[in-house]
Simulated assay, not measured.
Amino acid sequence: MNSPSDKTSGMTDDDFEMLRIERDAGVVFAAIDAPPINVMTPALFRELAKFSAHVAGDDSVRVVVLRSDNPDFFIAHFDVSAILSFPADGPAERPTEHVGFHDMCERYRTMPKATIVEIGGRVGGGGSELSMSCDMRFGALGRTVVNQMEVPIGILPGGTGTQRLPRLVGRGRAMEIILGGVDLDARTAEQWGYLNRALPADELRPFVTELACRIAKFPPEAVALAKQSVNAADELPLREGMFEERYLFQRLLRTPQAKPAMEQFLELGGQTREGEMRVADLVAEIRTDG
């Protein structure tokens, strides 16, 4: 199954049937709406892939948030009835490039925007793989449950799961989740590193919204290149990764927003005792949008 073309210049937020899209000051919120349980059908996959291309090239977007208004499900898993129709004749072939689901996941991982997933209910299979491809994941205590149900039904997490999960939680824990097909509750998912945080259910959405809006206020090139530098930690040996970090730091020094932002930091009280005691709030007061 191939992803749609990246030629989405004429696409609008109204061109999606299973994603309810809202925008607020550089943040795009996409709520998945595919009742009854948000199974990732081929149609939903195509919409999520189109949406990733739509926002990746939109300079007005700084942060992307995926969420669901279904209290029980973020995304259940990929449509098993669709997998049953996948071609299985002849020998398996080794791919040489990312296509289909892998291509979509890589776009969320690498697009020059922060990508955040708000997991308010169950997430499994391909929905979990999409979530792991994004930059941050937040869940709800007593509601969020993670499950990779592929091995019990005779397959494996084939949408990046066997590669993403060990990098998040470690090899042994990934084996428990994948080979055991067990439910992972929100608190354990947080402790193991799958979730950034597990919050009380009524605090999840306000927290994610506030964080997304906070990041959207920061210089977009700094967000994009900082993300690129962090991604390099997965892709390069430490020595080369440090070279990449130094190069990207030098690039950012040459952007028009860097000097004014640093000057504002000092003007607002940075490097004073009072300022540094509230540095997280202080840097949120810096304005770089003119």
Rank of each mutant, 00 (worst) to 15 (best):
A140D: 10
R109Q: 13
H102E: 13
P112R: 05
G90T: 09
Y108L: 07
P95S: 14
Y108S: 09
P112E: 08
G124F: 04
G124L: 07
G121A: 06
F101G: 08
Y108T: 09
K113F: 01
V117R: 03
A92T: 10
S128V: 14
H102I: 14
D103E: 15
E97W: 00
D103C: 05
M132Q: 11
E97Y: 00
F101P: 00
G121Q: 06
M132R: 01
P91I: 10
E93M: 11
G126Q: 08
E93R: 13
E106N: 10
G127F: 07
P95I: 11
S131T: 15
D135S: 14
M111V: 03
G139D: 10
P112F: 04
Y108G: 09
C105G: 12
G120E: 02
G100R: 06
E93Q: 15
V117H: 01
H98N: 11
G125D: 08
A114W: 02
A92K: 10
P91H: 08
R107P: 02
C105W: 00
D135P: 00
K113G: 02
E129T: 07
L130E: 08
L141H: 02
C105I: 14
R94D: 12
A140T: 09
E129D: 12
L130S: 08
E97V: 09
F138W: 02
G120W: 00
V117C: 15
M132Y: 04
T96H: 10
P91L: 13
F101H: 12
H98D: 14
H98V: 04
M104C: 13
R137K: 11
R137H: 04
T115E: 03
I119E: 10
V99R: 14
K113C: 11
V117S: 14
F101R: 08
C134W: 00
G126N: 10
E106L: 14
M111W: 01
T96G: 15
A114I: 11
F101W: 13
M111I: 02
I119Q: 12
D135M: 03
L130C: 08
F138M: 05
Y108H: 06
G124S: 09
I119V: 15
H102D: 13
F138C: 05
M104L: 13
R94N: 08
G125K: 05
G126H: 07
T96K: 08
G139E: 09
E106S: 07
